[in-house]
Each structure stands twice: as structure tokens, then as C-alpha cells.
Simulated assay, not measured.
Amino acid sequence: MSQLLRRDGLRLEAAAQCLVVSGKVGFDRATELADAGSHWLAEHPSGEVVSFDLSGVADVSTAALSVLLEWARAARRAGLSLERVSLSPALTPLTDLAGLERLLPLEAAGD
């Protein structure tokens, strides 16, 4: 696993074809997190399959959802196929409320 970002308990790592986020995602780090993940996505060849793992996000966070949506846009721009988005128990109700299951291949923790 390669570390892409580590700040104040927030961690972004890349494992195989997956971006993995853990810790608390706040708006103070959301732009930095989105940029690091978007840069990683842009480095992959078109047609590749990627996943996002937010199962380690520790809190309910609209900032995390903002980052997730930015990564989905970045993947689409790069011609990548988003296979799966794994969510933490804290994020699942928020994504349900936002109706993101229609837009993203969401997978709640434990699915």
C-alpha cells in the first residue's frame, strides 16, 4: 500500500486499484484529500477499474461525500470504471439521505 496523504489522523492510501481513506474527514483537509486522490486517478490508463474504500472514515462527514463525488468525476474524466465504493457505518445513512446509491456503486460496511 502506498501512502498518498497523512495529516492530523487522516490517511489516504492506494492499494492495488483502490483509494483507501481512514480517519476523520473535515473540510479543513477535504481539498487536499480530493486533490491527492484525483492526481492518483489521473495517472491510471483509460479503461482501468478502480474502487474507493471509505470504510475507515470515523464520522458522519459531508466533506467525505464531497471528496467522494470529486473522485467519481475525476475517474469519469480519466475514462476509468468505478467498480465499488465501500462506506463506513457512519457514512451509510448520509449517502442514503443524499440518494447517492443511484449515482455510485455503493457498498455499506459488512455487505
Score class of each variant (00 low, 15 high):
Leu5Ser: 08
Leu5Asp: 11
Arg6Trp: 08
Asp8Lys: 14
Gly9Pro: 07
Gly9Cys: 12
Leu10Val: 13
Arg11Trp: 11
Arg11His: 10
Glu13His: 07
Glu13Ala: 14
Ala15Thr: 13
Ala16Asp: 15
Ala16Pro: 04
Gln17Asn: 15
Cys18Gln: 11
Leu19Arg: 02
Val20Trp: 01
Val21Ala: 11
Ser22Tyr: 03
Gly23Ala: 10
Gly23Thr: 07
Gly26Trp: 07
Phe27Asp: 14
Arg29Tyr: 06
Arg29Ser: 13
Arg29Val: 15
Arg29Leu: 09
Glu32His: 04
Leu33Lys: 01
Ala34His: 00
Ala34Arg: 01
Asp35Ala: 07
Ala36Leu: 05
Gly37Gln: 04
Ser38Phe: 07
His39Leu: 13
Ala42Phe: 08
Glu43Ser: 14
Glu43Arg: 15
Glu43Met: 12
His44Trp: 11
His44Asp: 03
His44Arg: 15
Ser46Glu: 13
Ser46Gln: 13
Val49Ile: 13
Val50His: 02
Val50Glu: 00
Ser51Phe: 00
Ser51Glu: 11
Phe52Asp: 02
Phe52Lys: 00
Asp53Gly: 04
Leu54Val: 05
Ser55Ile: 00
Val57Asn: 03
Ala58Tyr: 00
Ala58Gly: 08
Asp59Ala: 12
Val60Met: 10
Val60Glu: 11
Ser61Trp: 03
Ser61Lys: 06
Ala63Thr: 02
Ala63Phe: 04
Leu65Gly: 08
Leu65Ala: 05
Ser66Gln: 13
Ser66Cys: 06
Val67Met: 01
Val67Phe: 01
Val67His: 00
Glu70His: 06
Ala72Lys: 05
Ala72Phe: 00
Arg73Met: 02
Ala74Cys: 08
Ala74Pro: 05
Ala75His: 03
Arg76Asp: 09
Arg77Asn: 11
Ala78Ser: 14
Ala78Trp: 05
Ala78Ile: 07
Ala78Leu: 06
Leu80Gly: 09
Leu80Ile: 09
Ser81Asp: 10
Ser81Cys: 12
Leu82Gln: 05
Glu83Ile: 00
Glu83His: 06
Val85Cys: 04
Val85His: 03
Val85Arg: 03
Val85Trp: 03
Ser86Arg: 09
Leu87Phe: 10
Leu87Tyr: 05
Ser88His: 01
Ser88Ala: 06
Leu91His: 00
Leu91Trp: 03
Thr92His: 10
Leu94Cys: 07
Leu94Arg: 07
Asp96Glu: 15
